[in-house]
Design a binder for these strands. Structure first.
Lengths: 238, 238
DNA sequence: CGTAACTTTGATTAGTATCAAAAATGGTGG
DNA sequence: CCACCATTTTTGATACTAATCAAAGTTACG
């Protein structure tokens, strides 16, 4: 986690020590547990040490839209950190090890340590960039492109997190959850996945995805990784 | 602008003075001008003093998705402030007065002044919350609900900015732009607007919108203003 | 093993897009 | 102030994508 922050907004050794010594408690949380609930005040900030989680909102009609997916090393709750009431829920997708940090500790360290504040802020800005791309994905791409796009995104993010390689990864989501992330029905996602398989772009085995032809899937998904901001260190120059 | 920041994350008088004295240049910018271009490094941070602007991205197919709308008093470019390359473009919707602040100045003041950093950060977190809601809007709501929802959002945001009252406002967007914000075609947006009018929920005159029945439009749009975080001051308790 | 959750397939429908064109509006120069 | 042109709004007809409904397979798990 620290490595990730550092890569985008450099921290001194002292900063890293300060981060490591922030008060927190680690707990193992089962799959399907809520880390944050829509409408409740955020009191702890959860950092995923292992496992997966997703943010979602429910419409008045009862439909669910997943608005982001998070994996080991990511903060799941900085988004709510300085707001009074959570505007969405966060739920684990798998069993997960979670470090809970009291909001108060986050508030204190960010006031006393501007470099850390900066690094956390940058982290939330990257989240925002992904939200924007999801608006586009869901708003302006057809079903095949949408699904291909999200498969590309997951592949790169998991590789960056060291959870995948060679364009092969475990995706611990049901097709229904995938559907809720791309704004389609699970039935349709199923058909699209089959089609992508038939075209030789991907292959699947249970929950594992192998991208057989990265270049073509990238094109099919209208995917450009720039929005992930994986390689940049703007703040490096101060 | 300062008032807005202060309301969500309190600033001392000294902070306010510091903000006011940040180096900047004010320019009048014509409608349709780009403030940020996708793919270019952000060098200045634009603060809208008057007028409107929107962020957008273009898909490989050439379709446009507007990902947010900004009005007087809002920062248009904090989102890119610490990232190396912009992942989207920002264009003015109307003629606008814009204060340009060099990124360097933002970086310096946020390192030296944690309260200001906090306030700006909170501002970007609220932006994120709106992005999330847009993902839901575009991903899981039908056309009528989507349009009603965005009309509600604009009404509250404009009122909060002092640009509207009594649920009546000027919306300087064409129906095509509105369509690009809700992920529909302009033809369909036109039909939905007509329908909302026939149902007595809104009325229109040129670009001005009057919400004739707030309660019913709110229901029609599955609208809950919580995600706008207009009334909260979490950081107040530090 | 038995059962619930998930995936897959098929048939039909609904909602939006697309295409086309007419009407209205707004701005410009004469 | 008017005539003209470009842009925007409106309407209609048709096509297509993805939703819905239903049910059969398959997988995971206690």
């Amino acid at each position: 986690m620290i490595k990730r922050l550092d890569s985008r907004s450099p921290l001194s050794e002292a900063d890293k020590l300060a981060l490591l010594s922030v008060q927190h408690s680690v707990r193992k949380v089962p799959a399907g547990a809520h880390l944050v609930r829509d409408g409740e005040p955020p009191e702890q900030c959860a950092l995923l040490l292992s496992g997966y989680a997703y943010r979602y909102k429910i419409t008045g009609e009862g439909a669910r839209q997943i608005v982001s997916l998070h994996m080991a090393g990511e903060f799941v709750d900085l988004q709510n950190s300085f707001l009074q009431v959570s505007d969405h829920s966060v739920q684990t997708l798998t069993e997960a090890d979670v470090a809970f940090v009291p909001m108060q500790a986050i508030r204190e360290i960010t006031l006393s340590n501007p470099s850390i504040a900066r690094a956390l802020w940058v982290d939330t800005l990257v989240d925002s960039s992904i939200f924007r791309e999801w608006v586009v994905n869901v708003g302006r791409r057809d079903s095949r492109t949408r699904v291909a796009h999200i498969l590309c995104e997951f592949s790169l993010r998991l590789e960056a997190a060291g959870l995948a390689k060679d364009h092969r990864y475990e995706l611990p989501m049901t097709q229904e959850q995938l559907a809720d992330a791309v704004g389609l029905t699970s039935v349709h996602v199923n058909r699209v996945l089959r089609q992508l398989g038939e075209e030789g772009l991907i292959s699947r085995d249970r929950r594992s995805i192998t991208i057989e032809d990265w270049q073509r899937l990238r094109e099919a998904g209208d995917f450009n990784e720039r929005y992930l901001h994986h390689d940049f260190v703007a703040a490096a120059r101060n």
